[in-house]
C-alpha cells in the first residue's frame, strides 16, 4: 500500500476515506482534522486556557500532545480514582507523559478527597461506573472554574460520539439529542466542554499515539466489566466495514440537520441551578450529587465494623 499523498510505503490504512498514509502524511492529516473540528465548531479561541482531562489512555494523551503542538495553553488534569494497582498504573503513565513533553499537570486524588472509588463501590448501591463518571465530571468542571480555565477538553473520538448518538437515538432522548456535539457552551456554573478529536476514530488516535511514541495505559478498569457503549461500537464497526464513511456521515448529518431540529423542539427547562451548599458546584438539589455521595460514603464507612476493626 502506498501513501496517497507522497507514494511512500503506507503505515495507516483508512478505508473510510478510501486512502492510506505514511507516518508523516498521517500526522498532517490528523492535525488537519483537529484544526477543522476546532475551526468549524468554535471549540477554542486564541489565548484561552485549556484544561485537558487525562485518563492515561490513547485518546486523552494524543489530544494533549496535539493541542500543545498547535500552540494552545494546555494543562492536564488527572483524577486518581484510588483503585488498587489500576489507578497507580494509569497515573504513572500520565505523569511520565507530562514530564517527557514538559506539560503542566494537576492531579486530584479521590482518596484524599474522602471518596475513593473502591469505597463508592462498597457503600453506594448504584452502578459504580455511573457514580465514577459523575465524580470525574464534577472535578473536571470544578477545577476548570476554580482555576480560571475557559475550556475543558476531553478525548472523546468519533467512535465515542457515534455510539453515544446511536444510544440517544434508540431512546429518542430529545434532551440529549438537543445538545450532543463537539461543543457544550459554558452556562449556569459549567465550563465550556469541547471534543477536538470528534472527527477522528479510535483507530486513528491509536495510530497517532503509537507513531508519536506515547506510552498509554491499556488495562481496562477492573470495575467496568466493559464500557457501556462497547456493543454499539461493534455494531457500528460492522456498518463501517460494509459501507466505509458511514460513521462520519451519520455524525456530521446529525450536527447539521438533526440537532438543530431537536434544539428547537426541546423547550423543556430543568430545575433552576444554584451553587452547592458544600462545594459551590452547580446543582438543583441544594447539596450536589457528589457531595451527597461523599456524605453517604463517610457515614457508611464509619459504621462499617470491618473498617472499625482496622
Amino acid at each position: 500500500m502506498k501513501c496517497r499523498k507522497c507514494k511512500a510505503p503506507a503505515e495507516v490504512p483508512l478505508p473510510s476515506h478510501n486512502t492510506a498514509f505514511c507516518r508523516d502524511c498521517f500526522a498532517a492529516y490528523f492535525t488537519g482534522q483537529v484544526e477543522k473540528a476546532i475551526r468549524r465548531h468554535g471549540l477554542i479561541k486564541p489565548g484561552e486556557r485549556v484544561l485537558v482531562a487525562l485518563s492515561g489512555g490513547k485518546d486523552s494523551l494524543s489530544l494533549m500532545l496535539e493541542l500543545s503542538r498547535l500552540g494552545y495553553d494546555v494543562t492536564g488534569l488527572h483524577v486518581d480514582l484510588g483503585i488498587p494497582v489500576s489507578s497507580a498504573a494509569a497515573r504513572n503513565k500520565v505523569e511520565a507523559f507530562c514530564r517527557l513533553h514538559g506539560l503542566k499537570l494537576r492531579v486530584i486524588e479521590l482518596e484524599k478527597e474522602g471518596l475513593p472509588i473502591p469505597d463508592v463501590k462498597r457503600y453506594i448501591n448504584r452502578p459504580v461506573c455511573s457514580a465514577c463518571g459523575k465524580i470525574k465530571r464534577h472535578w473536571f468542571n470544578r477545577i476548570a472554574l476554580e482555576e480560571d480555565f475557559q475550556v475543558l477538553a476531553t478525548g472523546h473520538n468519533l467512535d465515542d460520539e457515534v455510539a453515544r448518538l446511536f444510544a440517544n437515538t434508540l431512546r429518542w432522548d430529545a434532551g440529549y439529542l438537543s445538545d450532543q456535539g463537539p461543543c457544550l457552551q459554558a452556562e449556569n456554573g459549567f465550563a465550556r466542554k469541547v471534543k477536538p478529536l470528534c472527527r477522528l476514530t479510535e483507530f486513528e488516535t491509536g495510530c497517532y499515539a503509537f507513531l508519536n511514541g506515547i506510552e498509554i495505559h491499556t488495562a481496562p478498569c477492573p470495575y467496568s466489566g466493559g464500557a457501556s457503549f462497547t456493543g454499539h461500537k461493534r455494531l457500528w464497526a460492522d456498518l463501517e466495514h460494509m459501507s466505509p464513511g458511514q460513521k462520519i456521515a451519520f455524525y456530521d448529518g446529525f450536527l447539521k440537520r438533526g440537532r438543530p431540529a431537536f434544539a428547537r423542539q426541546e423547550q423543556e427547562k430543568g430545575d433552576p441551578l444554584a451553587p452547592c451548599e458544600v462545594c459551590k458546584s452547580p446543582t438543583s438539589t441544594g447539596i450536589c450529587g457528589v457531595c451527597r455521595l461523599k456524605i453517604a460514603v463517610t457515614e457508611r464507612r464509619a459504621a462499617d465494623p470491618e473498617r472499625q476493626a482496622k
Binding site: 503505515e11 473510510s16 476514530t201 483507530f203 503509537f210
Partner: peptide, 15 residues
C-alpha cells in the same frame, strides 16, 4: 477488520 487494531512490527505499523 482493518481498523479494529494496530498491527505492529518493530517500530512500524503494517497495512
Amino acid at each position: 477488520r482493518v481498523n479494529d487494531a494496530l498491527i505492529i512490527r518493530g517500530d512500524r505499523l503494517l497495512t
